[in-house]
Design a protein around this nucleic acid. Structure first.
Lengths: 344, 344
DNA sequence: CTGAAAGCGCTTACAG
DNA sequence: CTGAAAGCGCTTACAG
């Protein structure tokens, strides 16, 4: 089957009786075009349903009006929201947005940055929760290399010391605030579930968690800190582990889940142990997914305004800003956290 | 700050002491290159970390190794899984995958197909649950137009009568199977919640739902069919509507939710009415999201194998297949459906 | 097996 | 204000 051929700038120029240079000028909205010609060109464009080839533009031009975003697995709606916000803002600014899953980047390869560079992007926002020690050099090299080709902004950790602008999600502050909230509810045995153990970032949740405990003169109980990941399953296994390993009088009365998915897993584990929520156990999540309000009990969570973060990051990348901003967030109080049951 | 310049095919040719034509040949894996030269070229490529510009390739070449996928809002992980499957398969076949949210397409505009065409795609898979009557012409026109430029496959409804290949999700068969399952559990008052009322596709859920009722000699009760959307909120409002409008003796004993998100909303509504699941009410969802097993009770759902669907669709588009295939799916039985409580 | 050359569809100095 | 022309980095006949 024969493919339709795009109308080209030549077709339009011929139709309008002008040079392709003039067509190009009206296309890009240059003011220096005689109104009469401009109109003829615009009519021709409409007539032919003409749209300039992005490939040709990229090849010829200095600006490509395209940015990229590299994100972890989309199964967590959290990232999908980040993408949506980014996409909307890009569109609003007349840019196209290309999505690159981290998994498609192949950090093993000698220079994954070229994968983006070959796409002629003007900028890339990359989501990076933290710098895993094992891959630190590789990732940093990737980012530096990327920066040779385009603007870069990172969402997640603060890499300003390496010269990368972006939006910093202060997980330590967030965790501290959460602990305070739980403490204000009278909780003294607070667990923290999920996340990667190799994460040594000082701004990780743990830092805030520990500070919160200290502040409230509560001991750090190692059994209350379990790692595991960011899935419901890891929440289930995590809390099960805690509950199965301790006699009930030592069970935590509150758990901070890495995110809402992990929190959901905790719901399961609690139920399996006959714990009712929030009466026997308080659970707080993070990300405030659309489903959070509909869980039983409705999940108290942290709204990171990921849509706004995504939008802002794209904005930074497009306008080439270089600062580091801290993401704002709010604890959304719902029914899954309650005052600590009086001990007996 | 100055941007790094990509090494070009000229740099490689110079380095290897051959013509750019030869470099191009080894790049594309043509066999007709002397081993010695090939090796020199390969070394040069490695040395310069060279990757060909995709824009230049698209401009010059006949094949662009890029396909697109147009999807609804990603907040539902269902679509994210579709994307993931598609992305993996594309990558496996050496293709790049570009994501286009439906919302970015602007059906109002005179020719949204050009938005994809300008990207020089070889093919596009578009997700289309059904053909909304109000936009039927517009969408069909979009698809036809798209087909002039590239291979097209549609996931969702069966548009083979219009000449579009793709993967058909037989929602009627699916609903019929679900009704049968519920009937086998003894249910006689079965509600169906969610979806768009304007969907008149004969393969929509409703057809199977009605057939299932007929088959079991059950009456169709209009109050048991409520529309509303695909979100948790629509499930909540939907079931609330049913429960609030009927005296308890007429309450449904089972509800079929459009998807897992809607099912979640139904959980909420049931709880608000003091109904315990699955004792008083059975709920079945669809999509089998990662969170389904962790709800309380664990949600019985339908696994559409969306990852596989996404993968298969890009495969069809890339190899230019023209058939229509029916997606396979399985009911995943978990705890949210139980035998009908004996009436008394 | 290999190279010189044309061409893909644009943008952008450069003249005028 | 406008056009002729060079150039972006590739691929692909066409000769050899």
């Amino acid at each position: 089957m024969k493919r339709a051929r795009h109308a080209t700038i030549y077709d339009i120029a011929a139709e309008a009786g002008v040079s392709i240079a003039t067509v190009s000028r009206v296309l890009r909205g240059e003011p220096s075009v005689a109104p009469a010609k401009r109109e003829r060109v615009e009519n021709a464009i409409r007539l032919h349903n003409y749209r300039p080839s992005s490939a040709a533009r990229k090849l010829a031009g200095t600006v490509t009006k395209t940015v990229g975003i590299v994100l972890p697995r989309l199964f967590n709606p959290y990232y999908a929201m980040l993408f949506t916000g980014a996409q909307e803002k890009a569109r609003e600014m007349g840019y196209a947005l290309s999505l690159f899953p981290w998994s498609s980047l192949d950090m093993e390869s000698f220079d994954p940055a070229l994968l983006l560079a070959e796409r002629c992007l003007e900028g890339a926002v990359v989501y990076l929760e933290y710098l895993p020690p094992a891959d630190k050099d590789r990732i940093l090299h990737f980012l530096k290399r990327l920066k040779e080709f385009m603007n870069v902004a990172v969402i997640g950790c603060d890499l300003s010391e390496y010269g990368f602008p972006g939006i910093f999600i202060n997980n330590a502050a967030l965790a501290l605030k959460i602990v305070r909230y739980l403490v204000s509810l009278g909780h003294e045995r607070i667990a923290l579930i999920g996340g990667s153990e190799e994460d040594t970032d000082p701004f990780r949740r743990d830092a805030g968690y520990l500070e919160g405990l200290r502040e409230a003169q509560l001991p750090f109980t190692e059994s209350y800190r379990v790692w595991g990941g960011d899935t419901p399953e890891s929440g289930l296994l995590g809390l099960n582990g805690i509950l199965d390993g301790l006699k009930p009088s030592f069970w935590p009365t509150a758990v901070i889940a890495l995110n809402d998915l992990v929190a959901l897993g905790c719901f399961s584990a609690a139920a399996a142990h006959g714990l009712s929520l929030p009466g026997d156990l308080s659970v707080i999540g993070c990300d405030n997914l659309v489903s959070a309000p509909y869980l039983a009990p409705p999940l108290t969570s942290v709204d990171l305004h990921q849509r706004r973060i995504g939008a802002r990051a794209v904005e930074m990348v497009i306008s080439g800003e270089s600062g580091i901003e801290e993401a704002e967030w709010d604890i959304v109080v719902r029914g899954s956290c309650a005052p600590c049951p009086s001990r007996g």
